[in-house]
């Protein structure tokens, strides 16, 4: 039997009250691939991320992470099993310094948990990894600034830094380039490419340039259903996708 996919969704449904948002999504994300989820506004992309990362449970269906059923588990359990996500609306610790923001997501993965017996600024391994992540997201010079006063682009970079700092091998990025200028987007794409090496990446993105540049495979989500999953070239050529989405929104 082939190794289990990094992420496996089976017949996932989600309704808010009587309104179905996700209507039977089945999707395998292969370990090590960069997988983009695209679709028009309101297609349910963020809802899908919220189900997978444990923000809320699906109404029906199962989610497996590296073969383990994680359906309905709380976010911290899913994170401890090696899945980490970023948020479309920046979601950081505003009063903590940039350095501390990154450090918070390093602590659990290095097994310090709820420790009362360690002095946090004397932990070599924590410090090393925090410094390395800060260098990767190019915020070393700003590490003592409260995260709340960073510029928008810097906060987006920090958002990604917090997401990857825990060393998760399945990374979900929810519109990492939203609201960025052209040059900022280019920089962010290179950052994501560099950080996702050897990891499984699932990314929701509106910028088609980013998607076709970055993704190994693309899934198209329309009204809560995946209408196609394929390589970028074949998605571009797919008639149904063009009708449903690309033809009208491509820019």
């Amino acid at each position: 039997m082939s190794p289990s996919p990094a992420l496996q969704l089976q017949e996932v449904h989600k309704s808010f009250g009587p309104t179905p948002i996700i209507r039977g999504v089945t999707l395998d994300v292969v370990a090590g691939e960069r997988h983009a989820v695209i679709g028009p506004n309101g297609a349910g992309k963020s809802t899908l991320f919220n189900i997978v990362s444990g923000r809320f449970p699906p109404t029906r269906g199962t989610v497996r992470l590296k073969g383990t059923d994680i359906t309905g588990q709380p976010p911290f359990e899913i994170n401890r099993r090696g899945l980490s996500r970023s948020f479309q609306v920046t979601n950081i610790f505003p009063r903590l310094s940039v350095h501390e923001n990154v450090r918070c997501s390093v602590l659990w993965s290095l097994r310090y948990r709820y420790s009362l017996w360690h002095r946090v600024d004397r932990l070599r391994d924590v410090e090393d990894r925090t410094e390395r992540i800060l260098a990767q997201i190019n915020l070393s010079a700003r590490q003592d600034v409260p995260a709340g006063v960073l510029t928008y682009a810097e906060q987006r970079a920090l958002e990604i830094g917090i997401t990857i700092a825990g060393g998760a091998d399945v990374i979900l990025l929810d519109e990492p380039t939203a609201g960025m200028s052209h040059s900022e987007t280019e920089y962010a794409v290179e950052l994501i490419r560099g950080l996702s090496g050897g990891k499984t990446l699932v990314i929701v993105e509106h910028d088609m340039g980013v998607v076709f540049n970055l993704a190994d495979r693309i899934s198209v989500l329309v009204y809560g259903e995946i209408i196609a999953t394929d390589t970028p070239d074949r998605i571009r050529a797919n008639r149904a996708v063009q009708d449903a989405y690309l033809g009208t929104e491509h820019h």
């Binding site: 976010p75 948020f87 979601n91 610790f93 505003p94 918070c104 602590l107 017996w117 825990g166």
Partner: peptide
């Protein structure tokens, strides 16, 4: 004072600032 510099003490600040994000970096 020492408590504020332990991993738990630092995560208290994180939970104060943004409990939701703390959940997504592994903390309950």
């Amino acid at each position: 004072s020492a408590f504020t510099r332990t991993p738990l003490g630092r995560m208290c600040n994180a939970v104060r600032d943004n409990p939701e994000r703390a959940e997504f970096v592994g903390y309950n």
